[in-house]
Design a protein around this nucleic acid. Structure first.
Lengths: 108, 108
DNA sequence: ATTATAGGTCACCATTTGGTGTCGTGTCAA
DNA sequence: TTGACACGACACCAAATGGTGACCTATAAT
């Protein structure tokens, strides 16, 4: 269960702003077909399809064919890795750390 | 204060595994000069320096010159944006959402 | 039956990315 | 003062990235 099909890094997948917008759009609806997603962007269908492929490779998106359309939906769970990663560094942006940086700055 | 010098996206900066390792190394010490960082990788000094430049452009790293060496240190605060972004989606990987996905899967 | 829609696939392209080696300069050590 | 070290800057390169348009097939609508 919960197969590890992740060809691609989640960090890599969310690096592109277009793909983050796709994730956002898919979060706001159950399922969205490609042509409807494409309508939200200025680029062509092929480009959007490529971005969705990358999201699929990272396990962030699932798709199913319904009639002649391919509907996409979000699978957010790979984002857990991102959250775990960033949580580790949350202790480094406390006010104490900011003050330390300021002190080192003024030292020279 | 806390100037917004971010030429580059933090999402972009953390996409590369080498840069994430740099962030980790810098989190474990106060300051590390370039040559010492370079020793941790298999690539050359120029490549590591380029990665650090990218981290600097994202505001994730600060540097100061001391003698003939350039010492780098972590400035984690831009990671806050990442945390805020990913926190929004945490509600989508609850067990309920996973079950819903399974149901949609079995539907066809 | 014909036409329009949806989308996969492919070839193609410009730009960016991630690495290399070299050269020049400032700094520390002998 | 001579040499070794640390580094920035630059030219260069292969591969990945992010986009395009054209073609083909499957499905839906008329």
């Amino acid at each position: 269960m919960s197969e590890n099909n992740q060809i691609r890094d989640a960090f890599d997948a969310i690096a592109d702003p277009t793909r983050r917008r796709l994730i956002r759009l898919l979060a706001e609806a159950e399922e969205i077909p490609l042509h409807e997603l494409t309508a939200q962007f200025q680029m062509g269908r092929t480009a959007v399809s490529k971005h969705l492929t990358i999201l699929k490779e990272a396990g962030l998106v699932l798709d199913r064919k319904v009639g002649r359309e391919t509907r996409f939906r979000l699978n957010a769970s790979p984002l857990r890795e991102i959250q775990d990663w960033v949580a580790f560094y949350s202790k480094f942006w406390s006010t104490n750390m900011l003050r330390l940086n300021q002190l080192l700055e003024e030292e020279e």
